[in-house]
Amino acid sequence: MTPEELEAARDRLVPDVVAGGLRVLFCGINPGLLSAATGHHFARPGNRFWPVLHLSGFTPRRLAPGEQQELLLYGLGITNVAARATARADELSREELIEGGRILEAKVEALRPRWLAVAGVTAYRTAFGERHARIGPQDRTIGSTRIWALPNPSGLNAHWTLQTMAEEFARLRAAADADAPETDL
């Protein structure tokens, strides 16, 4: 894509990949410009979401962003805290993240996934007013939906390696599998 094509995608929306009763609803901070241009979540090649999803055991193979609808076959979905596409997440205002948290909460109440997994603990803290949240399961719930804060899979988050990120995603997968109704196993 050319820089002009990417810039033209600014502020576009990327449709959610959702259904009622998911095992895990993954939630990014907001779509990047390449995601908005392609209509596929976590589309930037350096983003580690798709490799980590596979390495952690959520999917039997590494899916490409263009295969995102296949997530529904595994009881998984994707949404974002903020819907507006930007070049970098730090272009979002605090108010946008807080409003996104309100919208996300309503979405979760309607869809009732067993787990909401927010990929980006800083965004989670802002969106939900949980200043001291850490990576891992949270005390807060939305109805019966439990929440897990995950590391941001962006390639810019160098603190987390592919392996350590996959280990954290695998902890969530184990928790989701442990509380699954027997018909899901």
Rank of each mutant, 00 (worst) to 15 (best):
S56P: 11
V14E: 03
E5M: 12
L150C: 14
A106N: 12
D139P: 07
L185W: 14
P65Q: 08
L22C: 07
H132F: 11
T59M: 00
I142M: 01
L22G: 08
I103P: 01
L34E: 13
G20V: 12
T86S: 07
A178R: 15
A9W: 01
V81Y: 01
P31V: 07
A158H: 15
T86P: 01
A175T: 13
H132N: 14
S144I: 10
L13T: 13
L72F: 13
P45W: 06
R62K: 09
A9M: 04
R62E: 15
R102N: 08
A158G: 09
G66V: 12
R131I: 01
L13M: 02
E67G: 04
R134W: 00
R88I: 06
H54E: 07
L150M: 14
V24D: 11
R102A: 02
T59C: 08
V108C: 04
G77W: 06
L55E: 15
A127T: 09
Y124S: 10
L162R: 12
G101L: 02
H54G: 13
S93P: 00
T183N: 11
L73I: 12
E168M: 05
L73F: 10
P113D: 09
W148R: 00
H40N: 15
L92M: 08
E99H: 07
V24M: 02
V108F: 06
W50A: 07
R140D: 05
I147F: 00
E168I: 04
R125G: 13
L172A: 09
H40C: 05
L104D: 11
A85R: 00
T59S: 04
L111Y: 11
A119N: 15
G120N: 12
D16S: 12
F128D: 03
I142S: 00
N157D: 04
V24G: 07
K107N: 04
P153I: 09
R44F: 10
D90R: 12
A180D: 08
T145R: 01
A166T: 15
E91R: 02
R23F: 07
N80S: 09
L92P: 02
R114S: 11
G32P: 03
N152A: 10
P31M: 01
H132G: 03
A117N: 10
N47E: 14
E95G: 06
P15R: 04
Y124P: 05
A85E: 02
E70M: 01
V17S: 03
M1K: 12
A82P: 00
L22E: 12
P51A: 10
V108M: 08
R62H: 11
G120S: 14
E167H: 05
A133M: 05
D11W: 00
H159L: 10
L104I: 13
T145S: 02
E91G: 14
A89T: 15
G21P: 06
P15L: 03
Q138E: 06
N47Q: 04
A176H: 11
T59F: 00
R114G: 09
R131W: 08
T145N: 09
S35C: 04
R131H: 01
T86R: 10
V14A: 03
E96F: 00
A106Y: 06
P137K: 08
A117H: 09
D16A: 13
G143Y: 08
R44Y: 14
R88H: 07
D11K: 05
A176K: 05
A110Y: 04
N30T: 15
S93N: 02
D179V: 14
I135C: 03
A174E: 14
T126C: 06
